[in-house]
Amino acid sequence: MCLLFDVFVENFTILIDLYISIGVNIFWAGDRLVSALSASRGKSAREGGRAGCSVDSSRREFIKAAAIASGLVLAGSLSVASRASTRGRARGRRFAMFIDVDKCYGCYACVVACAHENNVPVGVFRTWVERYVKPDGTVVYVPKQCNHCDNPSCVEVCPVNATYVNEDGIVLVNDDLCIGCGACIENCPYGARFFNPVKGVADKCTFCDHRIYQGLLPACVEACPTGARVFGPLSEEDSEVSVLVRAAKTQRLKEWTGNEPQIYYKDLPAEANT
């Protein structure tokens, strides 16, 4: 309900802004036109007998004023429209995940919960846990999944706009539009996308969007017995994930790609940064 209200307020503001800007432009242009017309009339009345000359002059002025006014109206409308097209999709919250690698002990409850919740076929994974063995024999477990990047290279390359970023920064796939070209899968640096062998379209983690918009946590977060995964809106300063990201020294995977991933790791071993 709160989200709906936010969307309404945002769109309403933009709409008002749009109408006011266009109205001001039209009013100003009309004012210029009226001024030009009255000026030319006054001039022709004053100049009396030199009617032919004044008609030419007033026509020129009128055309000039009309051209300026039309240009301004067009430019103003375009600028407002472009602002509206950008701001119209302005993001609401920014969901992110914090993963404390030290707390993960490789129980795979998150993997199983995800597969169960999202009906993920056998052999492909929306989330998985990597195991690294140190020379001293100790083991490090690193959970991975879609990073819901701020600048997602997978969305960039989709030729039909089947994959998109929603208003809260979650990267999603529209199953009804995906043509199955595999460009997004190739362009994901994290190996988080795959072809769903049942649906025949690109598939990936959705942050359990069907759950979080009902006030629930993603299945993997809920299933984690140690609280290694923390999910929430990073855009809200007092949220748990926001506090943790600020407090801990966190790393993100493959930052060199410029994708701006939104999964923040604590105590990530360098070898796992793949």
Binding site: P159, L177, G182, G200
Partner: peptide, 23 residues
């Protein structure tokens, strides 16, 4: 994988960037 939707490349190409469809 979905060849029946191939014409979507011509009808709804991703040629203009926006926040929803960057790049």
């Amino acid at each position: 994988r979905q060849p029946q939707r191939a014409l979507s490349i011509l009808t709804r190409p991703h040629l203009s960037p926006s926040e929803t469809y960057p790049g």
